[in-house]
Write a protein that binds this DNA or RNA. Structure first.
Length: 470
RNA sequence: GGUGCCGUACCCAAGUGGUAAGGGACAGGUCUGCAAAACCUCCAUGCAUCGGUUCGAAUCCGAUCGGCACCUCCA
């Protein structure tokens, strides 16, 4: 199936044409594992997962690579920067490696709860120091580097296309407006490839290199690892929108300066999740995590559903009300699917009717056009209400759609069937008797009493159902 | 200072030239002693404001107001 996607490089939706027919190499910037991921971070991985699923669904043989940043990501630019991992280590008393392991694990716990498919390759920066040193040597050989104040810098003046994707106007950037200019830089936009100086006294992660003992600059790892696993040119590079102007700009510069080739064909960026006050960030006090959502009674997939209702290139406004709406939506969807399963005994039917085929075509059209997932979701709702399509066909269609949505629509909810206390059962029994005697005042007061004790009773045609209140 | 984005109902949100998707909430109905559930129905002549282009504008252009992001670290 043909896929089109918005390319940040051209600022337009382009037909996707892979470098090698039928195959796709995709690299996505992964987490820096110095803290828990907040739900804004995770929105980006949900969007990348949708792209992953859509490419696979469309018949491509996909290789999806994601890095784990466990070194070199500074909290600030310039000499004042401190490695985020090291800072966390200093603050917590744990070793940097323990921190990396702990937060890597929690990251994958979150992504797994969100039904995000684990990339084919996940690679740690600290396991690829050799590749990074190799890349610096290539840049050095091509005359793109200089050493100043002990650090190795990339010289952007040696790369005329610098800032092309971000459309930076270098002469008009107000460098130093918000940060101190690094005196060692020839051009304020130059960036460090290898640190041997800086806030370094406590750095525990360091390696020997031709330029001295030190550690790599943050941007370097993505270039080095993506080329290792996907080759010197590959199809798709994803990440958050915030990476366009610095991180990806620098990645492009150092990669293309090293190889002399176009590095990435399609750049795909996901917009931010924001709240009423604007962007979510880890430095802005408390941040929202999947485990917090769970504590408040939401399923991780309620959040996934919420993300599916907005387009990946638009900001999405988070609120508890909006999340509750998503939870209700997903719950209703699941209920309707469950009743379809009950009705058919779970038997799916091959799609044969014109009506069903039309729904499938519409769905396919949406997902293969720049990830128009919100419209695809609307198609699912239309399908649920359709009166001409048989239940068996519906189930087949739902299964196909959910291979993209990944909302576990066909999965039966396992109810934790805690035993109902005898006390409650007695009250329910009493109420049933009161109802039978048409003493509704007593029945209602008994229902209130049951409610006070934390249970809800609902009458069905097969008698009373009892639920524990959440 | 430079760059870019956004403003659609009570909330979230889709829609980039052909007459406003979808979800949630609300309201009404069927059913039920009532409630809940389920099902049905209703829900923006309107897309920040003002002009312009066009047979036709939420969509294109200009201005204004309001909000946000990036040019430090960030998904």
């Amino acid at each position: 199936m043909e896929v089109s996607i918005y390319n940040t490089m051209s600022r337009s939706i382009e037909p996707f044409i892979p470098l090698e027919k039928g195959k796709v190499g995709m690299y996505c910037c992964g987490p820096t594992v110095y803290n828990y991921a907040h739900i804004g971070n995770l929105r980006t991985y949900i969007f990348e997962d949708l792209l992953h699923r859509i490419l696979t669904y469309s018949g491509y043989d996909l290789t999806h690579v994601m890095n784990i940043t466990d070194v070199g990501h500074l909290s600030d630019d310039g000499d004042e920067g401190e490695d985020k991992m090291e800072r966390r280590s200093r603050e917590s008393g744990m070793s940097v490696y323990d921190i990396a392991e702990m937060y890597t694990k929690s990251f994958f716990t979150d992504t797994s709860a969100l039904n995000i498919i684990t990339p084919d390759v996940t690679c740690r920066a600290t396991a690829h120091i050799g590749e990074m040193i190799g890349l610096i040597r290539r840049l050095e050989k091509n005359g793109h580097t200089y050493i100043s104040g002990g650090n190795v810098y990339f010289s952007i003046d040696t790369f005329p296309a610098y800032g092309r994707m971000a459309r930076l106007k270098l002469d008009q950037l107000s460098s130093g407006a918000r940060i101190e200019v690094d005196e060692n830089k020839r051009n304020p936009k130059d960036f460090v490839l290898w640190f041997t100086k800086g806030k370094f006294e406590n750095q525990t992660m360091k390696w020997d290199s031709p330029w001295g003992v030190g550690y790599p600059g943050w941007h370097l790892e993505c270039s080095a690892m993506s080329m290792k696993y996907l080759g010197e040119s590959f199809d798709i590079h994803c990440g958050g929108i915030d990476h366009v102007s610095v991180h990806h700009t620098n990645e492009i510069a150092q990669s293309e300066a090293a190889t002399g080739k176009e590095w990435v064909k399609y750049w795909v960026h996901g917009e931010f999740l924001i709240d009423e006050t604007g962007k979510m960030s880890k430095s802005k006090g408390d941040f929202l995590t999947i485990s917090l959502l769970k504590e408040k009674g939401y399923d991780a997939l309620d959040y996934r559903y919420f993300c599916l209702t907005g387009h990946y290139r638009s900001q999405l406004i988070f609120s508890w009300d909006a999340l509750s709406a998503a939870r209700s939506g997903r719950t209703n969807l699941k209920k309707q699917v469950a009743s379809l399963i009950q009705e058919t005994g779970g038997k799916k039917t091959e799609i044969s009717s014109d009506a069903a085929q039309a729904v499938l075509d519409e769905f396919n059209g949406h997902i293969t056009t720049d990830l128009h997932v919100p419209q695809a979701l609307a198609v699912l709702w239309k399908l649920m209400k359709d009166k001409d399509i048989t239940s068996g066909e519906k189930l087949s269609l739902i299964e196909m759609m959910d291979s993209i949505f990944a909302l576990d629509l066909l999965k039966e909810e396992k109810k934790e069937s805690e035993p109902i206390p005898q006390e409650i059962l007695d009250l329910v029994q009493k109420r049933a008797e009161a109802k039978k005697a048409r003493d509704f005042a007593l029945a209602d007061s008994l229902r209130d009493e049951i409610g006070e004790k934390g249970y809800t009773v609902k009458d069905t045609k097969d008698g009373a159902e009892i639920f524990r209140n959440m």
